[in-house]
Structures are given as C-alpha cells and as structure tokens.
C-alpha cells in the first residue's frame, strides 16, 4: 500500500479537513502540483482551482480552493486558503453566473484585467468541479 501523509486544510474561520491521504493534487498559482509522501519541503502560492485528495482506502475528495498557500513539510501538507468549498457544495448555476459576470467586465486598467482573469479562472474551476460531481 502506498505511503500516506497528513493533509490539513485550514481557512481563517475553521479547520476544514484533517486526514491522512496518499496523494494530493494542489492548484498552485502556475498549475497543478501533485504531491506524495516523502516530498521535499515545499512552499507554494495557490491559485483558484481544484484540490484533489486521494485516500489510502481508495476514493478521493475534491475541494474548490480560492487562492492561499500550501506548505509541505515533514510529511505534512497544510493548505491555507481563505476559501475551501467541498465539491458537493459547489452549485453549477452559481458557477455559470459567476463566469458570465466575470466575462462581462470590460477591463480598462491593468488591475481590472487581472481581476477579470481571476474571476474567469475561478468560475471555470467551479464549473469543472460541479460537472465532475454531477452537482446542479
């Protein structure tokens, strides 16, 4: 059986998740990073995207993560994020609305363009997640 490591997801308001996993796919700012036990220490900035955790007994759980940081140290992964939503709670309709809202922005400054980009990325991640779980 594959080696496990502990994964905790912490938001400012509470600890969302704390269980051993065998594999984690985290949405870093520049793309997904896959993590397994015995990984060298890592400190990464996160983007908006999907966090996947595979359990030792099989099966996996998906979360939507809205930015934040991930730290892997001593076989312990800590995900610090202002927003962590379990996939079951992501609603497709809302995601669609958010995507439209983000696309409707007409950026006139660099800051707005960045915000739009982030909004689209975020909504797309949400949409993808809601498609995966068949949520509506």
């Amino acid at each position: 059986m594959a080696e496990t490591f502990r994964c905790t997801i912490v938001t400012p308001e509470r600890q969302v998740f704390d269980e051993p996993v065998v594999y984690a796919s985290i949405p870093a700012w520049d793309g997904q990073i896959g993590l397994m036990a015995q990984r060298a220490p890592l400190l990464a900035k996160l983007g908006d995207g999907i966090l996947r955790l595979d359990f030792p007994q099989g099966g996996s759980r998906l979360f939507f993560v809205g930015g934040g940081f991930a730290q892997m140290k001593g076989d312990k992964l800590t995900v610090l994020t202002p927003e962590a939503v379990p996939a079951e709670e992501v609603v497709q309709k809302n995601a669609q609305a958010q995507l439209q809202e983000a696309q409707a922005i007409v950026p006139s400054t660099e800051k707005e363009a960045l915000r739009q980009q982030r909004g689209i990325q975020r909504a797309q991640a949400l949409l993808e997640l809601s498609g995966k779980t068949g949520g509506n």
């Binding site: 400012p12 700012w29 060298a40 220490p41 890592l42 400190l43 990464a44 900035k45 940081f69």
Partner: peptide, 23 residues
C-alpha cells in the same frame, strides 16, 4: 534552503504580509 519555493520567497512574502494584516 531545502524548501522549494514557488514563486520566489520574496514574492511569497509579499503575498503573505497582507494576509497577516487580515488575520
């Protein structure tokens, strides 16, 4: 120095400092 940083430590810190203020 064993840490893998992504992006660079200075950039990460720039992101983390506002977070500290918020918390």
């Amino acid at each position: 120095s064993f840490y893998d940083f992504s992006p660079s430590p200075a950039e990460l810190l720039n992101e983390l400092l506002p977070e500290t203020v918020k918390t």
